[in-house]
Design a protein around this nucleic acid. Structure first.
Lengths: 161, 161
DNA sequence: CAGTTAGTTCGGAACAAAACGAACTGTAAA
DNA sequence: TTTACAGTTCGTTTTGTTCCGAACTAACTG
C-alpha cells in the first residue's frame, strides 16, 4: 500500500536533490523535508517516514532531529497517542528567503573585499573590474531591499489572517 | 620567494571557502579560482599555481581543467612559449550573476511545481501555502528583473569602454 | 632520434559523510 | 513486573571525495 503516488515520488526526488544543494542537507534529510513540503499539515509519523523513504530507524531518527534542530520541521502529538507527527514548520518559502538574505549579505561583504583588494593591488584592471564592482554592489543592495519587502509582505499577510 | 603577500594568502583562503560553498567546487579548484579573482589579467602559469597552492601536478591539472570546463577560467599563450597562462574569464561578478540567474529560474520552476501540487493535492492548506507562494513568486520575478537589468548595465558599460 | 618541457591519465591511499543494525532508554499499559 | 511501544545512541559498514605519485603522451629542441 503506497503512501505516495508515483507523481509525488518523482517530485520528492526532484525536490530532494534541490534541497540537498540549496540548503546543504544530507540526502535523507532533504528527502524528508521534500515530503513535508508536498504534504498536508497533518504530517507523518516516524513509521510512515521509514516506509516512504525506505530508510532505517536510526537514519530517520538522526535526520528528523537535524531538521527539527534547524527548524525546518515541527511536530505535534494527538490526544491519547504517544507518537509524534512531523510536518514542515512555517513555510519553506520563508526558510528560502531567510537563506537568500544571508547569502546576499555575505556576497556584499566578499565583493567589497575583492574590489578593495584589486583597487589597491591590480590597478591596471581596476578601471574595468572596479566599475563593474559598483554595478554589482547596486544589484545586491536592490536584492536586499526586495527580500526585506517580501518578508514584510509575509508578516502582513500572517497578521491579517 | 613568495608569489603572494600574507594578506593575499589570507584572502585566498577566505574566498576559497566561499567559492567552495557557493559554487560547489572542490577545495583546490576553489582556491585556484580565488587566486585568479584577486590577480591581474596577466594570470599565472601551471608551475606558478603549483607553487602558490603547494599542490601536486596532477591535482592542479585536474582542477584547472574543471575550472576551464565550467568557464570560470580561460587561458592564453605568449608568442614563442608553449606554456599556458590562466586567468579568470570575464569578471567573477558576471559569473556570480549568471549563477544567480540560473538559481532564480530553477527556484521559480520548483516553486511553481510545489504550488501546483499542493493546490491539487492538499487544498485544505492551500489558502495559506498558496498565498505565500504567490508572494514568493513575485519576489523571484522581481529578482529576475534585477538580474536582467544588471546584466544590461554591464553590457552597456563594456560597449562604451 | 634522444631528451626536455608541459601537461594528462589512472590507480590507489586517506579521509569524510551517510546510512545501518543492534543494543539501549523511557514511558505506559496489562 | 513484564511486555509493548516509540524512539535514541553508538560502533561499524558503505559510499563518496580529494589528493597524490607514477607512468604516460604530445610537442618541441638540439
Amino acid at each position: 500500500m503506497g503512501l505516495c503516488s508515483e507523481h509525488k515520488k518523482k517530485l520528492i526526488e526532484e525536490l530532494g536533490l534541490y534541497f540537498e544543494k540549496r540548503h546543504n542537507l544530507p540526502p535523507l534529510a532533504a528527502r524528508i523535508y521534500a515530503i513535508m513540503v508536498l504534504s498536508s499539515i497533518e504530517g507523518f509519523s516516524f513509521e510512515q517516514l521509514m516506509e516512504i523513504t525506505q530508510a532505517s530507524k536510526s537514519s530517520v531518527s538522526t535526520n528528523l532531529n537535524l531538521l527539527l534542530q534547524l527548524k525546518y520541521l515541527e511536530y505535534y502529538t494527538r490526544p491519547g497517542e504517544r507518537k509524534r507527527y512531523f510536518r514542515s514548520s512555517g513555510s519553506f518559502l520563508q526558510n528560502m528567503l531567510r537563506e537568500r538574505y544571508e547569502t546576499v549579505n555575505s556576497d556584499l561583504e566578499l565583493t567589497q573585499k575583492i574590489i578593495d583588494f584589486n583597487q589597491e593591488n591590480n590597478p591596471e584592471n581596476y578601471s574595468k573590474k572596479g566599475y563593474i564592482g559598483n554595478i554589482f554592489h547596486a544589484f545586491l543592495e536592490q536584492e536586499k531591499l526586495n527580500i526585506e519587502q517580501t518578508l514584510q509582505r509575509i508578516r502582513d499577510f500572517k497578521e491579517q489572517s
